[in-house]
Design a protein around this nucleic acid. Structure first.
Lengths: 347, 347
DNA sequence: ATTCGAGGTTGAAAGGTTTCAACTACCGAT
DNA sequence: ATCGGTAGTTGAAACCTTTCAACCTCGAAT
């Protein structure tokens, strides 16, 4: 059998090699080539080997758009995170990617940056792409859109956040518990004026961590809790909050700061150190997430560890389940956080 | 004109709303709907408004697979980085995403994790998806594949790495210069036994930074440079390298460590501190990249700053140029690194 | 010798969009 | 009254794959 070669996989006309070309070159029908690609067991050994060789020689690469159009489904999964620059989310994404990779499903990572408009743009994109699944840590009011996505057949799973109603599966970490762990630790080590820093307060993660802290404070008669809201959850927010707090009189300024995530905590730490405030002597700091950088900070940072990779893997599993069986029971997986004590809260 | 509504954008048959449905409901032809979507200026005001209303009411969302199939081009751009967990790359990606966003182009972020197999898998994916452009920081020998991609019409731009031949545009930072800056600083501050830590040595970034350091050492008669190769560029690699180095006799162990990136430097710093080695008194450490976390490290880390966001923006611009005009002149943009001195190399 | 079934293979239809040549309606100019 | 031109609209073709009912070929069973 003669195989017609046409250069490096590109054809004179500029068009790229299609199944039709492969079929012609291999002397089989279109359907057979497709079978080789998608149901190799239906094809005789000899044909399969031959066709595969031709595919390789012509440099044929399946056009995924056409595949998707006909098959009606995109294998890719979309993931929308609050902040790609926060290692917490890249660690989660890493876990997701790993598990999805085992199922030959690519991950399209989108970054809302805590911005509703960007979140919406990404949802448009994912919807146009007809992704088979969506992992989302929502910012705005997206429930109606998510419902619509699901009606279209897209599996949706919440990450790092429970779905309010029991409509969607979710994988999260117990934020109230985390808040309690952190606050209890501060109270136990003798802190009395605690500032909780994070925001915006609309974010459930922030709200719940704060609620957990409040629960603890209710049973600590002498201690008080103040909530300082930030517009974002990054180091810059931490820095400016710290500057603000240190402007207060020595008697009213907090003796402990509970940050809603480690980035904020690191920002706070930087500013305090710069201002000559001693950590933990004058002010204790505890963060949240326990990203890798927390341990290597100027003053190693106490934090509430979230099982990041595990979260990602569990989320991927939950999503794969819904993709495989859209009617599957809604799951509400809640993982446990863990207190990690380091120098920033010692004594 | 009556508009037939069929629920929340989903239709009884489970099929989703297509242009055909919109056309029917709006009482215009298919082509007109398409024009409204893609060439609004060709359509009369009245029709446009009407069709847009119908689109909204039916909840029509363009099927991108079909669009792509017919138009032959995917608007999305792929980006393949060495390590998503390294803030350097997410910062670059951030810059890329921002600029691409202005052009309504989504970014598909892939993570090779310095692994050739994964890199190859992602290239398959991008090729199947027919992305219009690819930003890549390569790991393995991918030149043949990249050439093929380009022949297929995909724009390719190297990021953080020059393309050896002048075949592809690239946006990078002068790594030799960065290596010189770091090494010169160490020599100037009296260090004599310098260890360069990074790898694998096949990575051009590592190779060039090392070469830069070597150039400096040639003119520093009393000083010596040793290369310690690591399999990866993360904190773990830094930690184990430090452990190893400290096993050496006090007279042969280095008095300065030049890490090929900040993650390694932070890992080294952690291990040294743990082992009771004083930084910078006993051993100075300088990193590379100047990620945000470098400044807030236990001992604030000296580093060689790379203009990360700028790199991303320039890369996006270069790519957009090639996409717009495939025959465009090949660009070789080289940005300048900058020495940032902090405590880890003080005195 | 005929029938049956299994294992392979075929070819046409379908999927939703964009493109483009062809057409219509209308206005202004002659 | 006719012509030319412009603005707007139409509908069929094309893009490439997957799917599936129909078909073919053998060998085994009767």
């Amino acid at each position: 059998m003669v195989i017609e070669l046409t250069g490096q996989g590109s054809r004179p006309g500029g068009r790229s090699v299609s199944v039709k070309d492969v079929a012609a070159a291999a002397g089989v029908s279109l359907g057979t080539v497709s079978n080789v690609l998608n149901r190799p067991e239906k094809v005789s050994e000899a044909t399969r080997v031959h066709v595969l060789r031709v595919i390789d020689e012509l440099g044929f690469i399946r056009n995924d758009a056409a595949r998707q159009l006909r098959a009606g489904t995109n294998r890719a999964v979309g993931m929308l995170v609050l902040d790609v620059r926060n290692p917490f989310f890249t660690d989660v994404a890493q876990g997701v990617e790993e598990r999805l990779g085992e199922h030959r499903r690519p991950l399209i990572l989108g970054n809302s940056g805590q911005d509703q408009a960007r979140e919406s743009t990404y949802l448009d994109l994912f919807e146009e792409q007809r992704v088979s699944g969506l992992l989302i840590t929502p910012v705005g009011q997206v429930l109606p859109r998510l419902r619509r996505l699901r009606e279209r057949g897209t599996a949706v799973v919440f990450v790092d956040r429970r779905a309010g109603s029991r409509e969607f599966s979710s994988v999260s970490v117990d934020d109230r518990r985390g808040g309690r762990l952190a606050a209890q630790h501060l109270v136990d080590t003798g802190r009395r004026r605690i500032a909780f820093v994070g925001g915006p307060k609309g974010l459930p993660q922030v709200k719940h961590r704060l609620q957990g802290a409040e629960q603890v404070l209710e049973h600590a008669p002498r201690a008080e809790l103040r909530f300082v809201e930030t517009p974002r959850m990054d180091a810059a927010a931490g820095r400016s909050t710290a500057d603000e707090l240190m402007g207060l009189g020595k008697r009213t300024r907090p003796d402990a700061i509970l940050a809603a995530n480690d980035l904020i905590a690191l920002g706070v730490l930087q500013s305090l150190t710069l201002a000559g405030v001693r950590v933990p002597d004058d002010v204790a700091i505890i963060g949240y997430d326990d990203i890798d950088f927390a341990a290597s900070a100027a003053i190693p940072l106490s934090s509430v560890r979230q099982p990041r990779e595990e979260l990602g893997i569990a989320a991927a599993d939950a999503l794969l389940e819904v993709i495989a069986e859209p009617g599957a029971r809604v799951r509400d997986i809640v993982l446990e956080p863990e207190l990690v004590v380091r120098r920033s809260t010692a004594g």
